[in-house]
Design a protein around this nucleic acid. Structure first.
Lengths: 141, 141
DNA sequence: CCCGTTGATTGGAATGACTCAAGACTACAT
DNA sequence: ATGTAGTCTTGAGTCATTCCAATCAACGGG
């Protein structure tokens, strides 16, 4: 959980200008892993007051392009963002409630898996999603 | 590529009624692997004439629930459908043009991978997506 | 320390995939 | 043949996301 000053340093290091919405959004992503855009907007507004929805969308795209956050798009869900980047970890998602948890990659480097037949593609990443039922939903059933 | 009679048999075997839109949609999915809804609508209309877009959506959902087709939702793309079901294969997707190719699973049975830490989830499937650049886009660059 | 340029933010409107509701219709069983 | 559960159609609506033009602010050069 980086301090505001560290967040600013992260932005500067990525060649991005330091603005209030950007600091707020990046902090919110650190604070709430796997949050969707809507809840990030809410979190930022709690901190900063008024921020336009479009600013958050724009900032998230800029942060994603800069490699400071990672956008994940599980099937059947809206886009979500997380701050863990560069360590090529994977996710386990509950089919029932949509909860997401991180799963460390056994290999650690991309691409961690190799296709049996790559069809001539030059593969740079292997994305793994484990689908299942989380403990809470399992005991509720 | 099943004949119309075989398609009807597939539908009946899944406990679904045999209707013109259903036969048309299921044939179209066999004919065009990894097609999105829009191009399936187009393909069905070529065969049958007028079919409402909503009927296609509805049929695709029914076929998915019955396990006759599989819905895949690659990040940054609309939903796509394929007829290969039950063999737990994976996909390689071109970052540039979105082309999708099948990759046979080395294991063959679900779940083919096991998480290093399952967080208590009961995992029933491991979905793998390989991201890269297809031969055509690579030579065009 | 101030100022201008460049890039960010805002607000409004639009896009597009997908869903919902209500009624007409039809495949299939009795 | 006939009833009925399940399909198809039409039309409207939802929601995440994007586009555009105008305003505004960060930050490096003076």
């Amino acid at each position: 959980m980086p301090k505001p000053a560290e967040v600013e340093e992260l932005l500067r290091g990525a060649g991005l200008r330091v603005t209030r919405p950007r600091v707020g959004v990046l902090s919110a992503v650190y604070r709430r892993p796997h949050a969707d855009t809507d809840s990030i907007v809410g979190a930022v507004r709690e901190d900063l007051g008024e921020v336009s929805t479009q600013a958050v969308y724009d900032v998230l795209r800029a942060l994603t392009k800069a490699g400071l956050v990672r956008r994940i798009e599980p099937a059947g869900s809206v886009a979500r963002y997380e701050s863990r980047v560069g360590d090529n970890h994977h996710h386990v998602i509950c089919r029932s409630c949509g909860a997401i948890a991180d799963v460390d990659c056994a290999v650690g480097e991309v691409p961690c898996l190799h296709a049996s037949d790559d069809h001539g593609y030059e593969i740079d990443e292997a994305e793994v999603v484990f689908w299942g039922t989380c403990p809470a939903c399992r005991s509720a059933a």
